[in-house]
Every structure is written in structure tokens, then in C-alpha cells.
Amino acid sequence: MARIAGSSGPRTEEAIRRAGLSLIATHGYAAMSLRQLAAEVGIQQGSLYNYFRNKQEFLFDLIRGHMLDLHAALDAALLAEGTGEERLTRFTEFHVAYHVERPQEVFICYSELRSLEPDNLAAVVAMRRDYERKLGDILDHGCATGEFRLADTRMATLAILAMLSGICTWYKPEGRLSTTALQEIFTGMVLALARGGEPAAAAVAPRRRGALRAGVG
């Protein structure tokens, strides 16, 4: 969120961001008012416009900021070189930890895509595609070296991301599994999927398989 000249500084900006995340995650974007946001931070509603022009820009800045942070953190975590299994393990461990630690941001990035205006939505979808591509590249490389056996790496990419990202909808920090335990469990499942190769012929009828392939983009 870019601060507009005349605003009171980064501490207020961060307070607005955290309050907005909490309110949207709890009540939804449509139900959150700027008056409510200002009251939560303890400032006048007019002061919000030192930080963003309108409610839509605020939502876009939240989601875009999350995606930028996600990409930067992934790039720092991934191995530049290594085997397919090593790189897929690093990706999975990163994705699990990042999403467990930021449940509100992740929830909003999925649930409030529908609230973005067309140009903003297109920008976020492009960033999501770039993230998917990074996982897809790992899977493609593993298939090329013979480490992985996947009939369709695009479908595998979407399946892995859906499985991993869904963690934040049910995971409780006070539950029986630590983040490290989750990383170990899900890394095992992801690697098993990547090594699995073609499914049994009877598992998916030919027509249904074609329909699935047509629907994954």
C-alpha cells in the first residue's frame, strides 16, 4: 500500500493493513465499511485517503502485496539447483509454512477474488499463474530426468496447490500437529503423487478424463 504525501507514516499504514485483513476475513469485503476500518484503527475516516483512494484499491493492495511477498519468499527458499525431489520438497515445505503462518491473507486472496474489478483481477490472476508456473517447472524438470512420472503436469500442479493451500482452512496452531509435522506429512504425499505415474486405466473413464483435461486450462 503506497503512502500518499501528507499521511502520518508507516506505523499507521501497517495498522490499517492489519485491521483491514482482520475485518475482511471476519465479515467479508462487501460488509466492511471504511468507517468501520477507521474506527478499528482509531483514526478519522478521511485519514484513510492518505493511504488509498477507495475501498477497491485497498483490497487490491492487500492481495497484490500478499502475492508479491509470496513470490519473493518462494524465490528465496527455492534451490537454484538440485534434484527434482529436492526442489519439490523445498517448495512443499515453504508453501505449507507460509500459508499456515498467514491464514488471513491466504483466505482473502482466495475468497475475495470475486470482489476485484476486472483489471485488478487480471493482474492478480497473472501473479497466481506465475506462482503455478514455478511449481510446474519443478514437475516438468523431474519428469524430464525420470524422477517423476506424471501423465499431466498441469493437472498435478493444480492438484498439489489445492491440497497444500487448503491447509489454512482447517489448521489450528493449538492442534496436535506442528508446522514441521505438517511439512513432513504433506511432503510425503506430494512426492508420492509426483512419483506415481499414470493412474490405473479403470480409475477414470475415457470421456471423464478428457473432460478433466479440458477444464484445467
Rank of each mutant, 00 (worst) to 15 (best):
H71Q: 13
H71D: 10
A72D: 06
A72G: 02
A76E: 04
L78E: 08
L79W: 12
A80S: 14
T83S: 15
G84P: 04
E85P: 02
R87S: 01
L88S: 02
T89P: 01
R90W: 04
H95Y: 14
V96Y: 04
Y98D: 07
Y98F: 15
E101Q: 14
P103N: 07
V106K: 07
I108A: 00
Y110T: 05
S111V: 12
R114I: 13
S115L: 06
L116N: 05
L116I: 06
E117D: 09
E117H: 11
E117S: 12
A123P: 04
V124D: 02
R128N: 09
R129C: 09
R129I: 11
R133G: 03
R133H: 11
L135E: 01
L135Q: 02
L135I: 06
G136M: 03
D137Y: 08
I138D: 01
L139N: 00
D140Y: 02
D140A: 12
H141R: 11
C143Q: 11
A144K: 13
E147L: 10
F148G: 03
L150H: 04
A151M: 13
T153S: 14
R154W: 08
L158A: 09
L158M: 13
L158K: 08
I160C: 09
I160V: 15
I160N: 02
A162E: 11
L164N: 00
G166R: 09
T169H: 10
K172G: 07
E174Q: 12
E174K: 08
R176K: 13
R176P: 15
L177K: 05
S178L: 09
T180F: 09
E184C: 07
T187V: 14
V190H: 04
V190L: 09
L191S: 09
L191K: 09
A192C: 13
L193A: 08
G197R: 10
G197Y: 10
G197A: 12
